[in-house]
Each structure stands twice: as C-alpha cells, then as structure tokens.
C-alpha cells in the first residue's frame, strides 16, 4: 500500500533539485520587468531633464505656473488625505465592527471609486456642482462660491477617486486583530474614545499608513477626474500632474520632465515619512 508520503515523495524531490534554477529564473523575470517598466524610463527621464544642464531645471522650478501648481497640489493633498484617512478609518470600523442592514451597501460603495473611470467621476461632479446647469451648483454660485473650474471641485474629485484606499487597507487589519483587545481595554475602564486611541489605532497603524501612502500617491497623480473639473487654466487650476501635460503639449519637454521628477520625489518622500512613522513590529 502506498502511503501519502510515497505519493508526494518524487514530486518534492524534483522540486528541491530544480529549486535554484527556478529561483534564479523568477528573480531575473522580476528584475527585467521592473527594469523595463520602472527603472529605465525614470532614469531616462532624469537624464533628459538634466540634458541641457542645470539652468533649465532651475528655471522650471522657479516658474510662476510651476510654483502655483505645486501649491495647488499641496493644498489638495492637505485636504483630501486627512479627510479620507478619517473617513476611511471610520468606514472600516463601521463595516467590520458593526452589524446592521445596508452594511453591504457601504461595502460595495467603497469599491465603486475603484471601478468607475475618473473621467466619469469628473462629469458626475459637473452634473451636480456645475455653476449654470448643475444640481446644487447654481445655489453655491449665488452665494459666491464657484465650485467647478476651481479648487473646490478639484479637491472633491480627488477625494472621490481616493476615497476607498484607507478603508480598503484598514478593513482586513481590523478583522484580523479581532475584538479581544478592545474588550479587554473597556473592561479595564477605558472609554470607547480611549480604546480607539490607545488600542485600536496603534493596532491598525500599519494599514492606515499604507492606505495614506496609496491615497497620497493617487492624489498626486490623479489626472482624469481633476482634468475634467479643473478647466486646466495654467497658473490657476493646474495641479503638478496637469502642469506636466500642459508643458509637454507646449513643446517644453524639460519642464515636463522636471515636474515629473518633482512628483516622483514627493511620492517617495511620502513613502519614507510613513515608513518612519510606523515603527517595525516587535
């Protein structure tokens, strides 16, 4: 009679014999893939930005339109990221810790921004907030607030497309840590608020940090939705990402490359900061 060990034996041996080759092949594929798609283009872009020396780069970095785009991008980040972080954590807690009818609806709504094309998001926002024909837009206009073709719409569009990232990252972590720690804290006298700050938040911080990185990266790079609602007015409603396109279309490749590098540097900076803020598990 053959035992289970007999049945798997040869296969296991075979795998062990070719494991070095398999490992090397996998590693090569990964490196070539990354090289062709990430390292190569970024290196080439860096090279092209500095091809004519430092002066054009400095000119780009001190250009009024560039500085305005940088400022606008930072403003959008500063509003969208904290809001979506708070909303994302709250949403995750509701979805994981509470039980009620309609919970599934929230769950699927959280996936919606991932599935809808950003251009559609932009059009939908115009439909609602458009100054002339929008649903609530005219009311805002009467009270002196322009939403579409202005900063508020760009912030709204960014919030919409980056809505799910924190919640999606936090939900599985929250499920995994379970409720024991929170219950232990409340029995020890902690209020729900204290339990959240002292127990829940530290336990989910890695998920939150990763969600924040994704949110910020998407907010930096969002093109479609923001482009539709911004009107793309250089020096007024242009984010860095829109600025890249505008400079490129204006036959100013060095400015386009330089701005791209700034975007990449910001993304890396956010990644590094979040790494720093979340110490390794013990």
């Amino acid at each position: 009679m053959s035992t289970p060990t007999d049945l798997v034996g040869p296969g296991v041996r075979q795998r062990a014999g070719s494991s070095t080759r398999t490992r090397l092949t996998l590693r090569t594929i990964a490196l070539v893939y990354l090289g062709l798609l990430v390292v190569g283009p970024v290196a080439l872009m860096t090279y092209s930005a500095f091809a004519d020396g430092l002066r054009p780069v400095i000119e780009t970095l001190t250009d009024r339109a560039f500085l305005h785009a940088l400022k606008l991008t930072l403003i959008i980040l500063a509003i969208a990221v904290p809001l979506n972080t708070i909303f994302g954590i709250a949403c995750a807690i509701v979805v994981v810790r509470q039980d009620f009818r309609g919970k599934r609806v929230i769950d699927s709504m959280l996936a919606l921004p991932l599935g809808v094309s950003p251009v559609v998001v932009g059009l939908a926002l115009i439909l609602v907030y458009g100054a002339r024909n929008g649903w609530v837009g005219p009311w805002f206009m009467e009270h002196g607030y322009r939403i579409i073709f202005s900063t508020p719409a760009m912030v709204l569009a960014t919030i919409f497309v980056t809505l799910p990232f924190v919640a999606r990252e936090v939900i599985p972590v929250l499920r995994e840590i379970g409720t024991d720690q929170e219950q232990a804290a409340s029995i020890l006298g902690a209020s729900p608020w204290q339990t959240f700050w002292m127990i829940t938040l530290p336990a989910i911080r890695t998920g939150v940090a990763f969600g924040v990185v994704l949110t910020a990266a998407r907010a930096l790079g969002e093109y479609g939705a923001v482009a539709v609602v911004s009107g793309k007015l250089a020096g007024r409603t242009e984010t860095l990402t829109l600025h890249v396109e505008e400079r490129w279309l204006a036959f100013d490749p060095v400015a386009a490359y330089t701005t791209s590098l700034v975007l990449a540097a910001m993304a890396i900076a956010i990644l590094v900061i979040m790494r720093r803020l979340t110490p390794k598990e013990h």
Binding site: D180, Q181, S186, A190, A203
Partner: peptide, 20 residues
Amino acid sequence: LAPQQRDVGFVFQHYAAFKH
C-alpha cells in the same frame, strides 16, 4: 451598566495582550 463601570477583571482565552 457598561463593562467599564462593573469593576470586574477579565482574562481571555487568547490573552488579548496589547501587542504594541
């Protein structure tokens, strides 16, 4: 009363240690 107000100690099967 809520658990906070009951003045009880509770030990869980899986420790419920505050990991951080």
